[in-house]
Design a protein around this nucleic acid. Sequence first.
DNA 1: ATCCTCCCCTAC
DNA 2: TAAGGTAGGGGAGGAT
Length: 956
Amino acid sequence: MDDHDDPYGAIKFGEFRKYIQNKQSKLKEQEDEVRQQGDPDALPLFQGLSIHINGYTEPPINELRRLIVQHAGDYQHYLKKSKVTHIIATNLTYSKVNEFRAYKVVKPAWITDSVREKKLLPWTDYRLGKLNHGQTELAFTSIKGKQPEQPAPSAPSGEALNKTLLANEWSRQHSSMHPDFVKRYFETSRLHYLSTWKAELKDIVRQARLKSPNTTADSCLSSPTRVIMHIDFDCFFASVGLRDRPELAQKPVAVAHGKGRQDNSSSDIASCNYIARSFGVRNGMRVGSAQKVCPDLQIIPYEFEKYRTVTEVFYNILFKYTQEIQAVSVDEALIDVSALIAHPEVGEEEAFAQKLRQEIKEATGCNASVGIGSNILLARLATKKAKPDNIYCCKSDAIDEFLAGFHLRDIPRVGYALCGKLQDMNVSTVGDLAKLSLSVLQSRFGNKTGKMLYESARGKDDRPLAMDQPRQSVSAEVSWGVRFETDQQLKAFMDSLVEEVCQRLKAIPTKGRSITLKVMVRAKHAEEALKHMGHGEVDVHNKTTLLDAPTDQQSVICHHASRLLQSMGCLTTDIRGLGIQIQKLDQEDRSGSQSKLSFEKAKTASTSTSLGHEPEQRLCTVDPSPSTSQRVTTPPSSSIHPAKPKMSVQFDVYEELPLDIRQELMDNYDLVIIDHPDIISTPPTPVASPSPPPVSPRPDSSVSQMPSTQPLADLPTWSQLDPSALLALPLSMQQQVLAAYGQIRAGKKSTSSSTRRPPLTPSSSSSSTTTSRHPPNRVKKESRRSKHPSKNATLTQLYPTPNRSGHPTLDVNDEISLEVLEQLPPDLRKEVIESYRLKPNQDKQTTTTIPSAQLPAPEKKPTALMGKTSVPDVRLVLQTWVQEYPTDPDTKDVATVTKYLKQLVVDKDLEDAQLLFMHLRHITLDCGDAWASAVALIQSDLSQQVLETFHVPIQL
DNA sequence: ATCCTCCCCTAC
DNA sequence: TAAGGTAGGGGAGGAT
């Protein structure tokens, strides 16, 4: 049989659509007939309602439809989310319950009773199943209070709900309105830790493998049957907690925030021991309901640092044996031990697993269980059999019996939704699942999922361990305790959330081009959540924006996130959750993120020597040599602004531009092509002529005569330059940029041979010349970002980027200089240019008119330093500062000043920023190295900010 | 076909 | 009182 039957049989796609359309119009006609033959006295009971009928009903669907249409209701044959207001059903399948969650689902009697009573009865009296929170209360009040003929109870307002909730001072202090909320929240969220740790552990494994390329991989691959072990601690949090509370060991114990002293605590149970489980307590349960089944339940607090320590010990034990590790979680890992097991037939793998367990027990005081199988699926299933505190080995000759014992939900990747859909197909055991054909599964669940189900039912799974994937996104979100009364509170919260994301980006370090804002908005009729300060029933909205260059800057992300939020137009008081996600990360060499460093701190003397990798060397700091402080010499400014500003372009630079960029430059500038043999002129239409355009004489325009600026490199390609951004710059700076390109052309031979990347932008400037006086994180970050081989041991060397192609490694994040570009093979070069092309529409928004990153109520406050806003005032502030700290500025103050100056850049007060920076540099000239490096730091940050904001490299 | 975007789903 | 995060896989459906 062919697995790929056309699901529509003989009907081709176009015909199928026609068929559906025909069917719809036919049904509409029928409906009109019904309406016409209807009872003229019928009341318009269902006026304005759109009603859909699901499944079998009593009375039958035709009768119900007649009643609905006769009484002015709109009958919907198909469930169109936008229109349907009510669904009639008598019973719902597992998955329909979920699908219809957002609708008013009522029993058929609602229709028949309403018709009989000649009035529209409250739909809440006819609710089907437990679809809605507070169903009983609503039904109760409606009976008692004789609700009007309004089917829906009056919708609560977010404002009123917030007011009630926040009337409680405790709640107010613990809500998102508190300035420290985000920080406190992430310090106490178990789920946050779980995610963070997983990322860190994956990174540790990746780095370890990068550092000492494994020799076992080949033997693993060539091994005839794989031996995969799944090691998983038993009730991890609870076990760690009990280790130091032996007096509770024989009692039912759970880990939760709430103490459980309160009557009906809505605190989640993160982990509970097996004694508690014997009472029916489960992970994820609320403390309140757990105490109902287990009144003696002991609640112990989270101890995140302890968990982390145990994890380090755990992973170090694994590293002793292999680098073939997939980090699953803080308490869980998969390892491929094929190479270590020579004789599986005599039970060598069991012996090894027991040894591992014993070692873990001795080192951590906690029990881990181990599942063994020939693939990931079987190993994980085996662990379920092994628990608690044991091993289980799935022998390859007994797979069928082994599988038969499992419920569907035990299969990894079969969760709530998939299980529900399968149950609707009358599948509830692995055996049932095995009866379905591949084609049936694939047509219902899609290609990959279908195949996964098909193979899982047979114990097949050919996925390799995931060990080497770099990270693809960074995000932060909060959906607990989120309540706002004012837009200012919302903005403050957004700021701190963005700050959090930026810190995470910088810690990796990486930058991203795609920003997604996620907003959870209280569902229309949702009351206050059952969980204290929870989000309750919400609608989730996502919106994404693409930048033209990767960023990790708070100001940039803030700006876009605010715009996204505004564009969604949601009610501030209804917001119940916010998240920011950064994607399209630059594929930077991410060797040696801080997780590695923190990992090394965990030393278990017994294991650290046998890890197979020595502890990392600390990053070396090098001779203090603050980046050269060049003078910016302002050239005589042109007296007249032409209608279009003039732009001089090197001929061969121009030639390199993609046609559309040429067109754009032409549209925005009075282009002057220079450096072409003896003639200069404005170019012809670029589309018409990709060949050297004729040029007219322009004797004085030699760009190389521009005042000398920086040793320039790392310029973006022309295609990366944003014309409108260039235009927004002060004229002197425009010329500086242009001069830079001129210099590159002129001096390219020498620059490319001597220094590939002389300092210009911060990302490239501080490579090997960071002073030891910089704040440590700064040193770390910038050294890591460096690509320079240096005699000092940097992490770059410790974890060299594999570069198999032999081409220079491309960093999307880096500015690509022309000479680097030239070294690329043509196809790659084209790709780079393409990827740096302008996106005109977006750039207009990001660069020409930056609307202040404000939320709905914009109050334009001028950027201030210590309350001062005018240049002379701020100058005085700076002077006082320097006088007070004649030799060594306080780091915090440096940060404050930097922030202020950067904000000026964001505000487009470039000239002020430049002025003030130059002033600061001037007054600190004789203040010694500490000040010099502080100034260099500020300079570097400012240049970076200019790059972020204007997309042009300017050295201030 | 193959990509991209916008979701949903899953796991811990 | 309470801390419902986060990364990645994959499907649907549209653009190319």
